[in-house]
C-alpha cells in the first residue's frame, strides 16, 4: 500500500496512548500490504518535537512536526486545516485518527476538507484491493457492521484499545512543517483546558477498571471502589449514568453509550444492574467481574465471574485479597 499518515494525539506536551495505537495500526496496515511508509503527524506548542522519537519507536518512518506557540491548546480549525493539507500534499492512501474526543472532532473535518468519506470507530481495518474494509460497532454495540470505504485518501478513526500499541522501531526522521493557517485567525478559539484529576489513570488507558453503580448507595462509598482500584495499582474508576446523574462522580467517569467506550483487560462492575446503555460501553472488556446482590441482574449474563452479594461487604475483602495477591 502507498504511505499512511497517522495522527499523533497529544494532551499538553504528552503523547496520548491512542497516538501510539494509531501509529501501530498504520504500521500493521502498511506492512500487511507491501510495506509503504508510515508518517506520523505531531502538532503542538514548541517542544512537542521531543516526542518524535517515541513515534519512531512505534513504527513511524517519518514524523512531521508542526510547532507553533499558538497551538498549546487544541485548535480544531488549525489542526484540521494542517492535517488536510499534509494528507493532500503527501499523497497518502489513508489517514488514521483516533476515535477519541479529539479525533472524533478532527477526522470528519479533515475528510470533508478533502472531499472524501470516512469510517468511524473502527475495531479493525484491512485493505482489499482499492477498498478498505473496516469493522464498526453500531446500534449501541448491538450490531457489528463490516464497511467498505472506497476513494483515496480514506479517513478512518480507530477505537481506543482496538489495537495494542506495539513497538516496531523505524527511523522516525523528523520533518518540520508550518501550520496551514495562523492560529490567531481561527474563528473557533480554545479558551481553557480543564484537566481532570491527572494523578488518576485515564479510563481509556487503564488495563483494569473498577466501576460503581447505584448499588453503592452513597457517594462516600465510592471510597471502596477507589480502594480496590488502588490495590490493583493499574486501575481507573468508572461509573454508571445513574451515579453521574446523581453527581456522585463526574460526568467524565461515565461508561456506556453516552459515556466512555472502554475495553480493559479486567472490568469489575460493582452494584451495577447492567442496562444495555451501560453494556454498550464495556461489553468488549476481556474479563468481566460482577458483584450484585440481585442474582437476576442482567450484568451477570455477560460477566465471566459473578458474586451474588452486598458490594459494601464484598469490596473491602476483595481489596485486601488483591493487595495480598499483588504482594503488598
Amino acid at each position: 500500500m502507498a504511505n499512511v499518515l497517522a495522527f499523533a494525539e497529544r494532551r499538553g506536551g504528552e503523547l496520548r496512548k491512542v497516538a501510539l495505537e494509531a501509529v501501530t495500526a498504520a504500521r500493521q496496515l502498511a506492512d500487511a500490504t507491501g510495506g509503504g511508509e508510515v508518517h506520523a503527524l505531531l502538532i503542538g506548542a514548541p517542544g512537542i518535537a521531543s516526542k518524535a522519537a517515541t513515534l519512531g519507536r512505534y513504527g513511524a518512518d517519518v514524523v512531521i512536526v508542526v510547532e507553533h506557540p499558538g497551538l498549546e491548546l487544541y485548535s480544531p480549525e488549525v489542526v484540521a486545516a494542517t492535517a488536510a493539507e499534509r494528507i493532500r500534499a503527501g499523497g497518502y492512501r489513508l489517514g488514521v485518527f483516533s476515535a477519541s474526543a479529539r479525533g472524533k472532532d478532527l477526522a470528519p473535518r479533515v475528510a470533508a476538507k478533502l472531499g472524501v468519506s470516512m469510517a468511524s470507530d473502527a475495531t479493525a481495518i484491512e485493505a482489499n484491493g482499492d477498498a478498505l474494509i473496516v469493522r464498526h460497532p453500531a446500534y449501541t454495540g448491538k450490531v457489528i457492521t463490516t464497511l467498505a470505504l472506497s476513494g483515496s485518501p480514506a479517513i478512518v478513526t480507530l477505537r481506543p484499545g482496538a489495537v495494542l500499541a506495539t513497538e516496531s522501531a523505524r527511523a522516525g526522521r523528523v520533518e518540520t512543517a508550518a501550520p496551514a493557517m495562523d492560529p490567531a485567525a481561527a474563528r473557533v478559539k480554545p479558551k481553557e483546558l480543564i484537566q481532570g484529576n491527572t494523578a488518576k489513570m485515564d479510563l481509556g488507558e487503564a488495563p483494569v477498571i473498577v466501576s460503581g453503580g447505584r448499588g453503592l448507595k452513597a457517594p462516600e462509598n465510592f471510597k471502596l471502589v477507589e480502594d480496590l482500584a488502588a490495590a490493583f495499582g493499574n486501575a481507573a474508576v468508572g461509573a454508571t449514568r445513574a451515579v453521574t446523574d446523581e453527581g456522585w462522580r463526574p460526568h467524565s467517569d461515565q461508561i456506556g453509550q453516552t459515556g466512555r467506550l472502554v475495553s480493559p483487560d479486567l472490568y469489575v462492575a460493582c452494584g451495577i444492574s447492567g442496562a444495555i446503555q451501560h453494556l454498550a460501553g464495556m461489553r468488549t472488556s476481556k474479563t468481566i467481574v460482577a458483584i450484585n446482590k440481585d442474582k437476576d441482574a442482567p450484568i451477570f449474563k455477560i460477566a465471566d465471574y459473578g458474586i451474588v452479594g452486598d458490594v459494601l461487604e464484598v469490596l473491602p475483602v476483595l481489596t485486601e485479597a488483591v493487595r495480598k495477591a499483588k504482594g503488598g
Binding site: V116, S117, M118, A119, I133, P137, A138, G141, K142, V143, I144, T145, T146, L147, A148, L149, S150, G151, R283, I288, K295, F300, K301, I302, A303, D304, Y305, G306, I307, V308, G309, D310, E313, V314, V317, L318, A321
Partner: peptide, 28 residues
C-alpha cells in the same frame, strides 16, 4: 456514497453467566 455496508451481524454472545459464589466467601 463511498462508505457502504457489506455486512451486518450480531456480536458473538459473551459466554458469561458464571456465578462463582455468594458474599465474601466467594472472594478467594
Amino acid at each position: 456514497a463511498r462508505l457502504t455496508v457489506q455486512r451486518m451481524e450480531l456480536p458473538p454472545e459473551r459466554t458469561g453467566g458464571r456465578i462463582i459464589g455468594e458474599g465474601t466467601a466467594a472472594v478467594p
